[in-house]
Design a binder for these strands. Structure first.
Length: 631
RNA sequence: GGGGACGUAGCUCAGUUGGUUAGAGCGCUGCCCUGUCACGGCAGAGGUCGCGGGUUCGAGCCCCGUCGUCCCCGCCA
């Protein structure tokens, strides 16, 4: 039999009671985490989002309550009325924050029962994703999840406060809108009123925030939901949240300063001190050193191994002498068997026109000096695993061979990228052996263990400089050459301004033009990117022209925006940072699902809500839509 | 679209070279227990080995296909 709540009012949360509360009359409400039945004495662990408190049901004191306690099962929802009392010395549980006290119950009300769940929130073992996602409401009850979402809340709040203090206004922009210039696939929403016409969900508030600058709001921000219909990854969901901001009259430096302030505040809310300013690296340099534009500085970068090889050696090894020869080093992996090495081969992206040498014993047999020199250049200890990545002359991929002064060619980038990707994958695989990621985990756990969520960052944050490595990436190329289309394509959205000094080369040497844009990377993740925008109509037209976007196309896609540009547009620029990714890093998670309450699977399914689904004929008819057979 | 890993009890997993009736821990059910806190004790229930097909005297194990989950490439900043 279930009880009514009646006029009971909760007086305290389960996790907040301490020895100092002893003697207090309290009413606790929550879920039964565990029940320990000793016959005439029953212990209930009562759980809510703040923690767990032990409730004692003594048959001699409350026979009724004790009888109810016998019926209670895990995840039943109960109210316990009683007195806080100190436990006997030998009954104190030092593992629990509330371990010095317990509730001597005078009444127990069973507010609701619960079916046996497929897993228990109190279980330590991590459940399989399928079950966790299907029963997300159970999964979210796990203390770890509750902690992550409290953390995300604290971070978001701190960022909001910081931006507000820095003069930014939070303004909402439409969800039902028009295709934005980000370049991903749009989610389309059919219009009932306008047959055959569609809204698009925003891939970002890009155009609207620029218009807000034209509107004179000076500084705008938004915790904005964005939608992109692309395949998912560990760090990519269909919908995600950006800390989006835009400001008038900024230099790059101005934007960096604003971001560094709110990042520092956000990290402080998680109990971690993030040193500012963040270091900077150019795109080309990042590709050379890490083979990626989102470097992870916790592991050694790529090493130029070209000096270890003579031209003859390269010829024998069938390595392109004109392309980079780099070594990557994963510390502490130890020697791998032939089988183990082969198991790693699928991690290497074959399509980039690069090859690798991971069998150093064999290399040393043919070319002992080269093998030794590579390890020396790489600074490799005995236990370090070293791989050489280089250009494959036999593999002719479609890529621009053209070398522009001071810039990397596409083929060079491909070799670096193949190495960088291999490095990242191997680093993930051998995380236990090199231990470089453990530092991060420890800092995160320390911060969490010190009860950050309760304190709201009141005490000294933990030094995060070893665990979190932010890095500004600058000097991106403005254009990429698309061989298939035989034209220059924007590397960013078409409102990104070129660096003023490079504008003279727009026509003569597009490859040398740098974009006035920037990325923020941290621990192998892209946290965000932004740019100084084009604010002059003539420059915008020039860029469209060099991108091969016709006037008609520009008008059709962004006509209203081009109009707005003509009515007094201030110089402006901004950035957007992935809030989910920031929360993920600070939660010590390696997947966005851990910090998104109701995420989708890699195949874009919501296993709990069971979306997407077909819709009724009636709905389709209203929307003037007919579904074609699967092709 | 492509590559890789995984799929055995509610959960976590073991299962030898293809061989009788598929196991363990946790959880669950019943009974017992007044100081446990991952309580303990006794007893018990629980399986279409993801699904379909094939090879074989015989398949959890081998082969083909398919579905699902995860990671990666493509795609996406």
């Amino acid at each position: 039999m279930l009880d009514f709540l009646g006029n009971l009012e909760r007086t305290n949360m389960c996790g907040e009671l301490r020895a100092a509360d002893s003697g207090k009359q309290v009413v606790l409400m929550g879920w039964v985490n565990r029940r320990r039945d000793h016959g005439n004495l029953i212990f209930l662990d009562l759980r809510d989002r703040t923690g767990i408190a032990q409730v004692v049901l003594d048959h001699d004191l409350i026979p009724d309550g004790h009888a109810k306690g016998e019926q209670v099962r895990p995840e039943y929802v109960v109210a316990a009325v009683g007195k806080v009392r100190l436990r006997d010395k030998d009954a104190i549980n030092p593992k629990m924050p509330t371990g010095e006290i317990e509730i001597e119950a005078t009444e127990l009300r069973v507010l609701n029962d619960a079916r046996l769940a497929p897993f228990s929130p109190s279980e330590e073992a991590i459940q399989n994703e399928e079950v966790r996602l299907k029963y997300r409401y159970i999964d979210l009850r796990r203390p770890e999840m509750q902690r992550s979402f409290k953390l995300r809340h604290d971070i978001t709040l701190a960022i909001r406060e910081s931006l507000s203090k820095q003069g930014f206004l939070e303004i909402e922009t439409p969800i039902l809108t028009k295709s934005t210039p980000e370049g991903a696939r749009d989610f389309l929403v059919p219009s009932r009123v306008h047959s055959g016409e569609f809204y698009a969900l925003p891939q970002s508030p890009q155009i609207f925030k620029q218009i807000l600058m034209i509107s004179g709001f000076d500084r705008y921000f938004q915790i904005a939901r964005c939608f992109r219909d692309e395949d998912l990854r560990a760090d990519r969901q269909l919908e995600f949240t950006q800390v989006d901001l835009e400001m008038s009259f900024p230099k790059q430096e101005t934007v960096f300063g604003v971001v560094e302030q709110f990042m520092k505040a956000g990290f402080a809310a998680a109990g971690i001190d993030l040193p500012i300013p963040f270091p900077r690296i150019t795109y080309d340099e990042s590709m050379r050193q890490f083979g990626t534009d989102k470097p992870d500085l916790r592991l050694p970068g790529l090493i130029d191994a070209r000096p270890a090889f003579t031209d003859d050696t390269l010829a024998t090894l069938q390595i392109d002498p004109a392309l980079p020869v780099v070594a990557l080093r994963i510390p502490g992996v130890g020697e791998l068997s032939r089988k183990e090495r082969e198991d790693n081969h699928p991690l290497f992206d074959q399509k980039k026109g690069a090859k690798f040498i991971d069998d150093f014993k064999r290399l040393a047999k043919g070319f002992p000096e080269a093998a030794a020199r590579v390890r020396e250049l790489a600074g490799a200890a005995d236990a370090d695993f070293v791989i050489v990545v280089a250009g494959d002359p036999a593999h002719h991929i479609k890529a621009s061979d053209t070398k522009f002064p001071g810039r990397l060619s596409e083929r060079e980038i491909n070799v670096y990228a193949a190495a960088g990707n291999f490095r990242a994958e191997l680093a993930k695989k051998y995380a236990d052996r090199h231990g470089a990621f453990k530092v991060t985990d420890e800092v995160v756990q320390n911060a969490a263990a010190r009860g950050i969520s309760e304190r709201n960052g009141a005490s000294e944050p933990i030094d995060g400089s070893k665990a979190f490595n932010p890095m500004w990436l600058i000097d991106f190329p403005m254009f990429e050459f698309d061989l298939a289309a035989a034209k220059w394509m924007p590397a960013h959205h078409p409102f990104t301004a070129p660096i003023e000094a490079d504008m003279a080369n727009l026509k003569s040497d597009p490859a040398s033009v740098r974009a006035n844009c920037y990325d923020l990377a941290m621990n192998g993740l892209e946290l965000g990117s932004g740019s100084i925008r084009i604010h002059r109509k003539d420059v915008q037209q020039q860029i469209f022209a060099s991108l091969g976007i016709s006037d008609e196309e520009a008008r059709a896609r962004f006509g209203f925006f081009l109009d707005a540009l003509e009515y007094g547009t201030p110089p402006h620029g901004g950035i957007a940072l992935g809030l989910d990714r920031i929360a993920m890093l600070l939660a010590g998670a390696s997947n966005l699902r851990e910090v998104i309450a109701f995420p989708k699977t890699a195949k874009a399914i919501d296993l709990m809500a069971e979306a997407p689904t077909p819709v009724s004929e009636q709905q389709l008819k209203e929307l003037h839509i007919r579904v074609a057979a699967k092709s």
